[in-house]
Design a protein around this nucleic acid. Structure first.
Length: 254
DNA sequence: ATGGCTACGATCCGTAGA
């Protein structure tokens, strides 16, 4: 089973890329973020025609998440239970006995800003919910744009980024708290090239200079991680015309 | 030098992303 996550930064703009990528990469489950469209505009029929069922929590202009799967999506959950939020950032479903959580974490804008405080509140609520999910599901995967670069090796220029949003200590503590629940960062289960990133700034030729961050993740419970045979970042879609600023991350479970 | 792209929804600029 191949699990993937991709922040598409507008599904309307990126749909051709997504359809091509589904064919070439052959994932079984895909978590999408930043759809930037409402549910009625989600291309449900077009995806169904190529074999993917979908669960969607869309929003106009901002946010919006979805899960695509070749098998039925059961027990669909939208949002973090008990955490009232207008912003559509969370959707979960059970697929072939695996609980899949799709996340688009808040950006945080700047350390100390209102949006930063919201990011930390969101993470506190997420942590409590996932602690609960961990007890309910043996096979649990958390995929998405977490908007945290957990270690300096996940940052192209750690000096320049020091203390900034995405790498600040309170954010990194929230990432560690997820690992402390028992999740594995599946990308780090394997040897990886140095300076492996999943996002590059559109500006200043960020991709050409490999000036990026690793902020998109596939976290796995021990039962899944022990059967994980690969986790890779697929840079191919970032090289196309009008790419998303994020690339897909793909993990395979035997 | 704090900009620099891109997408969106409002117009022909402001907001947001990371």
């Amino acid at each position: 089973m191949k699990l993937a996550t991709w922040n598409v930064n507008s599904l309307k703009v990126r749909l051709p890329h997504l359809l091509d990528w589904l064919h070439t990469a052959g994932p079984d489950v895909v978590c999408l973020q930043e759809l930037k469209l409402e549910d009625p505009k989600f291309p449900r029929d077009e995806l169904a025609a190529i074999g993917f069922a979908s669960a969607v929590s869309g929003q106009r202009t901002y946010n919006g998440v979805a899960i695509l799967a070749r098998s039925p999506l059961e027990e669909v959950q939208i949002g973090i239970p008990g955490f009232a939020d207008e912003q559509r950032r969370v959707i979960a479903a059970t697929i072939d006995g695996t609980r899949v959580v799709c996340l688009y974490a808040p950006n945080g804008q700047a350390v100390g800003s209102d949006k930063y405080e919201y990011k930390l509140r969101w993470y506190a609520a997420l942590r409590e919910w996932l602690k609960d999910e961990f007890t309910r599901h043996t096979r649990l995967a958390v995929l998405g744009d977490l908007n945290i670069a957990p270690a300096d090796r996940d940052v192209h220029d750690p000096k320049a980024w020091e203390g900034q949003v995405h790498v600040s200590e309170p954010e990194r503590a929230e990432f560690r708290a997820l690992l402390d629940l028992g999740f594995k960062d599946s990308f780090r289960l394997f040897e990886q090239a140095e300076k492996s990133f999943s996002w590059w700034d559109y500006r200043m030729m960020g991709f050409r200079r490999n000036a990026g961050l690793r902020i998109d993740f596939i976290l796995m419970s021990p039962a899944l991680a022990s059967h994980c045979i690969s986790c890779t970042i697929d840079k191919a879609p970032r090289k196309l015309e009008r790419p998303s600023d994020h690339t897909p991350v793909v993990a395979e479970i035997s």
